[in-house]
Design a protein around this nucleic acid. Structure first.
Length: 237
DNA sequence: ACTCGGATTCTCT
DNA sequence: GAGAATCCGAGTA
């Protein structure tokens, strides 16, 4: 008898993760600097099978992010969870860089961020949209959608992508994204971004005009593509 | 203890 | 374009 788990992944050897882990120093900088550099990187969720060799991955390429600044900044960023200082909820943001800050919102969704700045300072980048690159069927299943739906429906939105990757606060808040054995990682496969858009952040009421949202121009997975029209475009290099 | 509102998404009009 | 769903952290008392 052959189970789906056995046929899903070749049992020949351990799964090969795409690209290489991003170095910690990449995130030890202000989030408004890190955010645009994060575009094009991969967010990889590793899922264990019954046997170690049955591990599988669900992964997406980052195509939209927002920066949220720590309380040491002038002017401050009142839209950021960290802006009033450390609390039990936002503790991860004041810890070392490159860790996942996953919080629940509206009682039914999660959003996922990556901590920035050296330990002791807060700041983070919110991941707002991915382009699915691996585990598409599992993403659709996690989202309760039919396989074959538009990629944007899978991972175009901060809570959609958490659902697609199976991310929760209980399981993933505080996870080190830059360790070889981590179940959730940020990796670089060499994808080069030629240009990106800069716009105000979405869905906030404070500091709503600051240009701290970054996205790949014209990418179909970006949430609210209309919000990119007329946006300033920055050429890389 | 109690209130308030949110870094959203989905459905319906 | 509007409204509902639904819970917990943070601020105030």
């Amino acid at each position: 008898m052959i189970s789906p788990a056995m046929t899903r992944q070749s049992s020949a050897s351990k799964i090969r993760l795409p690209g290489k882990l991003v170095p910690r120093a990449f995130f030890e900088h202000p989030p408004e600097q890190v955010a645009p550099l994060l575009l094009g990187k991969l967010l990889v969720r590793r899922i264990e099978g019954r046997q170690p060799r049955n591990e599988r991955i669900v992964a997406g390429r980052i195509v939209e992010v927002e920066a949220y600044l720590g309380p040491h900044n002038d002017p401050p960023d009142p839209a950021a969870h960290a802006h009033r200082g450390p609390t039990p909820r936002n503790a991860v943001l004041f810890g070392p860089a490159g860790h996942a800050y996953v919080y629940s919102i509206y009682g039914m969704h999660y959003c996922m961020n990556i901590s920035c700045e050296p330990a002791g300072r807060a700041g983070c980048v919110l991941i707002r949209a991915l382009e699915p690159v691996a585990g598409l069927r599992e993403m659709a299943r996690n989202r309760g959608l039919d396989p074959g739906v538009a990629a944007r429906e899978l991972t175009g939105g901060p809570s959609r992508l958490c659902r697609a990757l199976g991310l929760t606060r209980a399981a993933h808040n505080g996870v080190d994204l830059l360790a070889a054995r981590s179940p959730l990682q940020v990796r670089d496969d060499g994808f080069a971004v030629a240009e990106y858009c800069v716009t105000p952040r979405i869905g906030i009421t404070h500091a709503a005009d600051r240009p701290l949202r970054f996205a790949l121009p014209g990418h179909g997975c970006v949430s609210g593509p209309r919000s990119l029209t007329g946006a300033r475009v920055i050429c890389v290099g």
